[in-house]
Nucleic acid binder design. Structure first.
Lengths: 349, 349
DNA sequence: CGGTGAAATGTTAGCGCTAACAAGAGCTAA
DNA sequence: TTAGCTCTTGTTAGCGCTAACATTTCACCG
């Protein structure tokens, strides 16, 4: 039997000179095979590649980085990658980065403060990432971002306008508009709102969309109930207040988990959904079609946002100081209303 | 007013020699301030630190890595970071890595095959990570892991035993045992099971736990229904089959999203939970207390698993070829049964 | 058949840092 | 006083790679 076991563990990893020696060329030629293969004669290239394979050669990224100044790594600064939105966006970012031959490093934040965000970016910079995407659609992000040196390429996901960096976002306002219009079109007099935390930009954009429709239609505008986090528990607790009010016939919750909490509160109060009260959410998490009842929601194309963010970042890296890029309008994608059974016409009173 | 604005953008970033010159010392002393500060006289150290601050000096990680061979980066190979389990574990890993002064790079897999896993690890290795955590409790992981060079430190999360690498895991079998015992103790004659995908190790461990209790108690062992993914949709579709069978009074679903789908299937079939059928899940996602009804589930301490994985990896990196570490028994943590309203005594027939 | 230019390959230097050793300063003890 | 120590700082070399320039090779043409 011919042995195809690898050679008995070389004492140290092969470097470029080893490959060059084995292939009978100079190190520079090996380097060219890696970086500009078309500039090497096919026959030489083949010999070099064979030598690489034989030695299981792996280019040393540190050495390459040292001389080129490029690391091939993008950074992502994120608050809570456990939430569906950030997790999905991160996934989209990773896919897009890989397609562009970049690796992704992450830095989670333990708090949403200016200092924490600056620290997160600094940790990534210390690892020589070539640029970073900030995934913290939060007011504090804006502050943290302003503190950054202008020559370090940063893109932010989901934050409002008037930031000194490019923005990729979902059009939350349009989403808020769509749900609210949908509920009004079913015949509801007005729509109540359980808002996300006030300092999250997504949350306030959704409020703006919701309010604008009510105002445009001349409907009463109830005071939105403000949650402190995005959790189902918040939705439940705020929902109990709404459930107790017989005037409430339609509620727009700022995300699906809160809508779930609201559904429970309504159920416990003996109010049926959608017969007595219509409920709509936001995010369209994979679970919402299976809620009781299946939830009308606004689907966010998180993956696409992630891809856009990477595109913007690569653009920016190519031309770090382009003011054109800096003042580029946010690259937004439209969310889509998904109507399910949790919304219907109001009860005839 | 004294200007505290930073100097007008230096033409190029400061390097160690710049700091040394400004502080009036040699580059080596600057290096020592960074790496072994106690070996530098306090007064000198202060001067160097001041120079660093003044120049906004940032050590070049590539240069350091080139000479030390250490990158300060850990890799995580993961399949679907959108799922609650992997996302939470990743979060725990990142926290623990940060505490140990490491950054985390991620590589998502587009498929669960041996080749994909090897490719993921290779991508990370190409970035010179010092070690990697594989977050893919899947049979294919085992194959992929065997293909790795023995001197590259790898830890796997959640995979079964007899792997050539250290393992951090939740004791899924114990979890399965606990839910099943709980349901039997309520008076059910036996417990049906909606299993996760067969090639996921977690899934089959849960089956083993469930089956072992039924067998030990001499109860009939229904054929488990096999899902193809972990989605609520699978739970729903398989759940419809169970809902149609009046003999079914207790079901253990292998995760909470599938339990949610099952709840819907039962509801649609007019079977009440828990009066007619008891349902239990696994994971205890943040939403499950708000399901209809609130779901009995098994809480997995994902964060802790992540921390353990990092600890094992650091151990392994410190001593890559320690056979002791290699054959270490899996470091498992116990999941906890959380009883809510979806489980109760069977109907009196 | 020498001249010419493009294509292929080689040589040199240096990216920024730290390991290893060298050397100076300040002190103790014989 | 000076050998001999410790504490602190400096010097040298090189990690593995690629940019820039230098040289060789080779096909083609007049």
């Amino acid at each position: 039997m011919t042995a195809d076991t690898p050679p008995p563990v070389p004492s140290r990893a092969a470097v470029m000179d080893d490959v060059a020696a084995l292939a009978g060329v100079s190190a520079m030629t090996v380097s060219r095979v890696l970086n500009t293969p078309e500039k090497v004669r096919a026959q030489t290239r083949a010999r070099v590649l064979a030598a690489m394979r034989e030695l299981d050669y792996r280019p040393n990224s540190a050495a390459r980085m040292l001389v080129t100044g490029r690391s091939g790594v993008l950074g992502v600064v994120s608050f809570d990658t456990t939430l569906y939105g950030p997790a999905s966006t991160l996934y989209g970012i990773e896919q897009a980065a890989r397609a562009a031959d970049y690796t992704v490093s992450i830095a989670s934040l333990s708090a949403l403060t200016r200092a924490a965000i600056e620290d997160g970016v600094d940790r990534l910079r210390a690892q020589s990432v070539e640029g970073a995407i900030v995934l913290a659609p939060h007011r504090s992000a804006a502050a943290g971002l302003r503190g950054l040196p202008p020559d370090f390429p940063v893109v932010v996901v989901g934050a409002g306008d008037d930031l000194p960096v490019p923005v990729a976002a979902v059009d939350n306002r349009a989403g808020g508009v769509r749900v609210t219009r949908h509920l009004l079109s079913l015949g509801h007099r007005t729509v109540w709102h359980i808002a996300g935390p006030a300092d999250w930009i997504d949350a306030s954009e959704r409020v703006v969309g919701w309010r604008s429709v009510l105002e445009a239609e001349g409907r009463p505008v109830p005071v939105p109930l403000q949650s402190s986090d995005w959790s189902p528990r918040s939705g439940y607790e705020l929902g109990r207040r709404l459930a107790a009010d017989p005037a409430v016939t339609a509620v727009f919750a700022a995300n699906d988990p809160m809508a779930l909490g609201l559904l429970r509160a309504l159920r416990e109060a003996g109010r049926r959904v959608p017969e007595d009260v219509s409920v709509a959410g936001f995010d369209d998490v994979p679970e919402s079609p299976y809620f009781a009842p299946p939830l009308t929601s606004v689907r966010q194309p998180f993956g696409e946002v992630g891809r856009h963010a990477v595109r913007l970042l690569l653009e920016r890296m190519a031309d770090p100081l382009a003011d054109g890029a800096r003042n580029r309008p946010p690259l937004t994608v439209e969310p889509e209303l998904v109507v399910r059974e949790s919304t219907a016409a109001p009860p005839v009173s």
